[in-house]
């Protein structure tokens, strides 16, 4: 250690580092995020507005949109219920295997979506464990809508739970206990105390869950069977059109997905800005 205090100028080198870092981040974002996003819209409108509109008005496109919405409408509420139940169990009770439950909730994040899809094929496919039995009873899961829903539920399972667990942990159960002592029944306690306290985090989780449910490709692709107009969701429709050299068609559907992403991002930012206090500083795991 030198006795003399070292004079350090906060001048050029430091400033330079700042500028370089900021530039790097900007260029990176531009190159890998903004440019591809812009490309989607540019390509979609390459031949003008009319071909774009007709591309998304084709029956297959409309069917894909309907199917995507249907899958999301089933998968998201299921995962809201599951997420609430799991978060409740994790934060309000002590039980054996709690850590295991926590790990299981994260499983869909750590497993490749393609594997998740394959698991369902192995379980419910024609050659799968339950395949013959299901076949005999006339139930079709793989290469049909139920398979798409199952795969999507699996993939989007962590979003709501992961959003709620840290918040509910931080809030504790005192308010709920107070409600009980004041005479509230279980449902009254839930709707009057628990739900209002977690509503923004829940909405945030639903948004993320929904975005993923509509945008999921890998797992859905494996169980879909790509039957046009029947089992193709929007991401699958994009891929199929692209493979058929229907670029405007592919990018037109893709632009709808991109729009969804932008809206989700906008609402998410709005929520974060408006309710930053309630959305406690925590990063939802892995996405």
């Amino acid at each position: 250690m030198s006795a003399r205090p070292r004079q350090r100028k906060p001048g050029l080198p430091r400033r330079l580092v700042h500028v370089v870092l900021i530039l790097f981040a900007l260029v990176f974002l531009l190159l890998f995020l903004v440019l591809p996003l812009a490309t989607v819209f540019v390509e979609a409108f390459r031949q003008g507005v009319l071909p774009y509109l007709s591309a998304i008005r084709e029956p297959e496109a409309l069917a894909a949109i309907r199917l995507t919405l249907l899958v999301a409408v089933i998968a998201v509420p299921l995962n809201v219920v599951f997420g609430l139940a799991a978060a409740w169990a994790m934060t309000r009770f002590e039980f054996r295997g709690k850590a295991l439950l926590g790990a299981l909730i994260d499983l869909p994040f750590s497993v490749s979506p393609v594997i998740s899809g394959l698991v369902y094929v192995l379980l419910f496919g024609a050659q799968g464990w339950f395949g013959p039995w299901l076949d005999a009873h006339g139930v079709k899961i793989i290469f049909a809508v139920p398979g798409l829903v199952l795969a999507t539920v699996f993939i989007t399972l962590p979003f709501v739970a992961r959003e709620l667990i840290p918040l509910m942990q931080a809030q504790g159960s005192e308010e709920e206990e107070a409600a009980r002592v004041l005479g509230a029944g279980g449902w009254q306690m839930f709707f009057r105390v628990t739900l209002p306290n977690i509503r923004w985090a829940l909405l945030y989780g639903v948004l993320l869950c929904n975005a993923r449910a509509m945008g999921e490709f890998g797992a859905v692709s494996v169980v879909s069977g790509h039957i046009r107009g029947l089992t193709t969701t929007m991401p699958l429709e994009v891929e199929m059109r692209y493979n058929e050299y229907d670029y405007v068609g592919a990018f037109a559907v893709a632009s709808l997905l991109a729009l969804l992403a932008l809206v989700t991002l906008g609402v998410k930012t709005l929520l974060e800005w408006r309710y930053r206090g309630e959305l406690a500083a925590h990063a939802p795991g892995g996405h």
Partner: peptide, 12 residues
Amino acid sequence: GMVFQHYALFRH
């Protein structure tokens, strides 16, 4: 009637 240590008032 119970008064909790950290009051447990309903914050909303």
